[in-house]
């Protein structure tokens, strides 16, 4: 794509992002009480949404073809185990990413 097309794409992506952040504040302006149902969703949806994002990240994996999603599976397992064990988010992310890069570049 050309530079101006890229610029248009970036600005639209920025608009979509700000829309998702501003929407609740547009629907419920200052001073109005948030309904209990919305407060409930605000509590449970972050967990569900982040679970969805994990799935979203591995959506392109083809479990029936070589390498059978093994680099993703192994690296995700490392991140999860390190996070449960050490609780150091950055260390978990760093270790998982380095392992994944090594696996896709050198092993598989």
């Amino acid at each position: 794509m050309s530079e101006s097309q890229a610029l248009i794409s970036v600005l639209l992506i920025a608009a979509a992002t700000v829309l998702t952040r501003a929407l609740p504040f547009i629907i419920f302006p200052s001073g109005k009480e948030t309904p209990a149902y919305i407060r409930y969703l605000g509590k449970v949806l972050p967990c569900a949404a982040i679970g969805m994002l994990v799935v979203y990240c591995v959506k392109a994996v083809k479990p029936l073809e070589f390498p059978y999603g093994l680099p993703e599976l192994i690296s995700i397992a490392l991140v999860a185990v390190m996070q449960f064990w050490k609780k150091n988010t950055l260390l978990s992310i760093f270790a998982g990413t380095v392992l994944y890069m090594l696996l896709v570049q050198l092993v598989f």
Partner: peptide, 30 residues
């Protein structure tokens, strides 16, 4: 493979959320 950093971030946050027992049903639903 560097874009795996995004997956790793979500997995790490997800693992943290799973530590809280009341999060497990919503997380499983997701």
């Amino acid at each position: 493979g560097i874009d795996f950093v995004m997956t790793a971030l979500f997995v790490a946050i997800f693992a943290d959320l799973l530590r809280e027992k009341q999060n497990r049903v919503p997380a499983a639903v997701g």
